[in-house]
Computed example of a mutant assay.
Amino acid sequence: MSQKNLIVAFGGVSPEHEVSVLTAIQAISALEESTYNCIPLYVTKSGRWLTGKKLLDLSNYKELSSLEKESISCAFVKDETGKTFLKEQESKGLFSKPKNYPVYAVLCAFHGSEGENGAFQGVCEMMDVPYSGSGVLGSSLGMDKVKAKLVAAANGIPVTKAVNFYESDWEQEQEEILNVAEDFDYPLIVKPVSLGSSIGVAIANDREELINSVETAFRYDAHLLIEEAVNPLMEINCSVIGTPSDCRPSICEKPLGQTETLSFEDKYQSGEGAEKGMASADREIPADISKELTKKIQNLATKTFSALDASGLARLDFLVNANTKEVYFNEINTIPGSFSFYLWDKSDLPFDKLLEELIEIGLKKHREKNGRVRSYETNLLSEKAIKGIKGLKGSKN
C-alpha cells in the first residue's frame, strides 16, 4: 500500500514551543508502522517554516540554531490544478533538488499562540487541505479563556466567578479591578487569557501577592483573568474525541501536582522523564472518584466540547470542590499535550489508533465542507456587471 504524506506541523512562536516538539515527535514515533509518510513541518520560534529528516530526531533540538541551519525552508503551494504541496524552497546537497510533497492531510501538534488559536487552521482552510483538530472558530474560542467561559456559561455549564482586564485597564483602573477581585475572597488565581500549560498562572493569598502575580502574568499576555479559587480543590480532566454533533469522552484523570494548582513543571518536568511530555506528569488514572461524579464530568466534557464547536480531540479540565463535589469548567485544550494518549490508552484506544481516528475526523470534515456549494457562479467583473457598478457612483441617497 502506498504511503500518504501526513504533514506533522509543530513548534511555533509560543512559550509552549518545546512542549509542541515533544508532542510531535511522540506522534511521529507512534505512526511509524502506519500507512502515513510523516513529513515534519517545524515552525521556528521566529516563525520560519522548515522541514527535513533531522527534525525527526528529538536529540537534534538541543541545539536549535544548528538544527535550523541544517533544515530546509518550505511552504504550502498550489499547482495549476489547485492541488496543495509542501514545497522545499532550497536544497541542502550539491546534487539534490528541492522536493514537493503532495499533502494528504496535516496533523496539528502545536500548543499555544498562532498554532493552536485558529491562525494555522486558517492557513489550512485557505490552502484547502484536511487538518486534524478543531476549526478556526473552535480553536480560537479554546485559546481564549474568557470567551470560552462566556460560551460555557451561556450553555448552562458552571464556571467560577472571575474578572478579566487588559494591561491598559490595569494601568488606569488598578484599584477598581483589585476591589472587584477581592469580593471573591482570597486565595485568587491569576491567569493569562491566551496561554496554556499553566504558564504565568499563580495563586495569590493577599493583595501584595495579587499585584505581583498580575505584573508577572503581563510578561506573557496583555489580557488577564483573576478567578475565585475552588477550595478545597480537586482537578479532574477528561478528553473528548469526535465532532460537535457526535463525540465521546475518555476515562477521567486526577493530576497530582506538588502545588495546589498544577505548574508547568508539574505537567512536563515530573514523573519518569520530561521527554515523555504530558505523559510524564504524575496522575491518577482512572481518577479515584465515584461513578456518579465520573459520569457528571464526562457529560459536562462532551457538552462543553460541542458548545465550543471543538472537533477532533481535546482535553477538558474541571475544578471540583473536594467537599461538596460541585464541578466547574476550567478550560479546554484543543490540542492537548501528548494528544492525551495516556487517557485513551486506558480507554482501550492505543496511541496509533487514536491518531488515525483523529486524522480521519479531519478528512471527513474536509470532504463534507467540499461537498457543499462554495462559490456562486456569476462574474461580477463581467462587462455588464461593471457597467452596473459604475452606475452606482452617480447614485445619491
Rank of each mutant, 00 (worst) to 15 (best):
K4Y: 03
V8E: 00
V13S: 10
P15N: 09
H17L: 09
V19E: 04
V21S: 05
V21N: 01
I28L: 07
N37T: 06
C38Q: 04
L41W: 03
Y42G: 08
V43Y: 01
T51Y: 04
T51R: 00
T51N: 05
K62Y: 12
E63N: 15
L67Y: 03
E68T: 12
E70M: 11
I72D: 04
S73R: 10
V77S: 09
K83N: 13
T84P: 02
E88C: 08
G93F: 04
F95C: 12
A109D: 08
G112F: 07
F120V: 13
E125D: 14
G138F: 03
M143C: 05
L150T: 15
A162F: 14
W170K: 06
E173K: 15
L188I: 02
L195W: 00
G196F: 00
S198T: 11
A202L: 13
A204C: 08
A204Y: 03
E208G: 13
L210R: 05
E215Q: 07
E215Y: 00
Y220L: 08
A229Q: 11
N237W: 02
S239C: 07
C247Q: 00
C247I: 00
C247G: 02
L256A: 13
G257V: 03
S263W: 03
S270Y: 06
G273M: 09
G273Y: 01
G273W: 04
M278R: 08
A281M: 12
D282S: 15
E284Q: 13
K295F: 11
L308K: 06
G312C: 01
L313Q: 04
L316G: 09
L316Q: 04
L319T: 11
A322W: 06
I332E: 03
F341M: 05
Y342L: 08
W344G: 02
D345F: 09
S347D: 12
P350N: 09
F351A: 10
L355T: 03
L358E: 06
I359C: 01
H366D: 14
E368G: 11
N370E: 06
G371I: 08
T378A: 15
L380I: 15
I386H: 02
K387C: 14
